[in-house]
């Protein structure tokens, strides 16, 4: 069991996300995250699917995805640049604002909103870094989190 990243190019139609998320729920594939966005070609979207499980299920997901009429191609990313963005609202007031800010600087998190008793950080990176930052922020009190899910591209020349 390990983490896998799949990247699927799909037709940018209405209903495609429903078809694919429906496929996952129907067949009981437990996915960690699914992100979708337009590519360099507006007729095509890229879906990045993060999946934790075994190789057999991974193979099944890849085959079932490839069967969906709107799916153009599916790749399991072996060496990928992957990123996720977190927005984290942390409880911080005059008493600890500077401390929280200091920690955030170590992680290169950006302050995107401040109010008297909280602030919002924006942080981008791979899962381990985000998790470490999140755990640090929890010690100060995290009020809310919004995550984008992982998006990724295979390294190296374009095939």
């Amino acid at each position: 069991m390990r983490n896998y990243l799949l990247s699927a190019l799909v037709n940018n139609h209405f209903g495609v996300l429903t078809r694919i998320s429906g496929l996952f729920s129907r067949r009981g594939y437990n996915i960690k995250s699914l992100t979708v966005g337009e590519t360099e070609d507006p007729a095509v979207s890229r879906m990045t699917i993060e999946f934790f499980g075994d190789e057999h299920t991974l193979g099944q997901i890849k085959k079932q995805l490839s069967k969906v009429v709107d799916v153009i191609r599916v790749d399991v990313l072996s060496d990928a640049v992957s990123r996720e963005l977190f927005l984290i609202k942390v409880r911080a007031d005059d008493s600890n604002r500077e401390t929280v800010k200091g920690v955030a600087e170590i992680f290169k998190a950006k302050i995107v909103d401040v109010c008297p008793d909280s602030m919002i950080f924006e942080i981008t990176g791979e899962e381990n870094k985000l998790r470490a930052f999140f755990d640090m922020m929890k010690t100060y009190g995290v009020a809310e989190v919004a995550r984008t899910g992982v998006t990724a591209l295979q390294r190296g020349p374009h095939e």
């Binding site: 057999h56 193979g59 099944q60 085959k63 079932q64 490839s66 069967k67």
Partner: peptide, 8 residues
């Protein structure tokens, strides 16, 4: 004919 049936 259906690759998804192999090894399912």
């Amino acid at each position: 004919i259906d690759d998804a049936e192999i090894d399912k």
